[in-house]
């Protein structure tokens, strides 16, 4: 069943620290059935010797859940950003090229710092504020069909693939990117979250906000969770346009 000489070739773009220059290193590892990119990287970690037979440092990468719900193990695999846990070796063309996502600062090898995404979530207040000094009681009910619809948007795992694919998220622009825009739609549709609707819309209308979207629609093509990101963007375009009309000369409407 398992052939002794079958090998998997990995070409990894490595970087020793945030400041140093990247370089490629090739690894040949023994093939096992049903390998994913992470188990291939674990093999490199177990025996950190490159294709030239030289001992090297083990390749660093981030991982968490190993079932495509945490978003930590995103990297560029054969040119496309995706999670390495669900990238099956049998389905990939060899040699398998691994590189860190280019939109984020590289910490080491394949590990990047996605802090900007979490900062964006803070900027748009992607939460439902319920903490107070006393029990507020149960919130308003949400219709079951709406809950099911909202569940799709809640699948976002802040993995960074949509930002990586977007031509307008780069070092020359401060565009917030698709993920946070879609989260505004999610929290503004929540019955309690809607109480802070305008604050989120105004955050989206600020510097680097949703107006910087150029409609390349790469995000919706790339999202591993199939989130309708471009529909969310267009929906927030509509909401912010209406909000800006209503408050064009100033407004005394806090919400709605």
């Amino acid at each position: 069943m398992m052939s002794e000489d079958k090998q998997v070739t990995l070409i990894v773009t490595r970087q020793d620290d945030p400041e140093s220059a990247p370089y490629d290193e090739t690894f040949k590892i023994p093939y096992r059935n049903n390998m994913n990119v992470i188990s291939a990287l674990m093999e490199v970690r177990r025996n950190p010797v490159n294709a030239n037979g030289e001992a090297t440092t083990p390749v660093y990468w981030d991982m968490g859940c190993l079932e495509e719900v945490c978003g930590a193990c995103s990297m560029i695999i054969n040119g496309k950003p995706r999670q390495s846990c669900t990238a099956l070796v049998d389905q990939l063309e060899q040699p398998i090229r691994l590189a860190p996502m280019s939109t984020f600062p590289v910490m080491r090898d394949l590990g990047v710092d996605r802090s900007r995404m979490f900062d964006s979530l803070k900027k748009v207040k992607a939460w439902v504020p319920i903490d107070g000094t006393y029990d507020l009681g149960p919130g308003p009910k949400m219709a079951e069909n709406k809950r099911q619809w909202a569940y799709e948007l809640s699948k976002c795992m802040t993995c960074g693939v949509c930002l990586e694919a977007c031509p307008n998220v780069n070092s020359k622009s401060d565009f917030i990117g698709p993920a946070a825009i879609s989260q505004v739609r999610l929290f503004n549709s929540h019955p309690t979250g809607a109480m802070n609707k305008n604050e989120r819309l105004e955050a989206l209308m600020g510097e680097g906000g949703l107006a910087e979207c150029g409609n390349s629609q790469n995000c919706v093509q790339s999202c591993p969770k199939g989130i309708p990101l471009t529909t969310s963007i267009a929906s927030m375009n509509r909401e912010t346009a209406l909000h800006s009309f209503k408050s064009f000369f100033g407004s005394d409407h806090e919400v709605e």
């Binding site: 040119g79 694919a165 031509p167 307008n168 020359k172 622009s173 409609n215 790469n218 093509q221 790339s222």
Partner: peptide, 13 residues
Amino acid sequence: TSKNNVSSYGYFR
């Protein structure tokens, strides 16, 4: 201010 990437993402849009 855009960084075009049609070679990696050759989608219609």
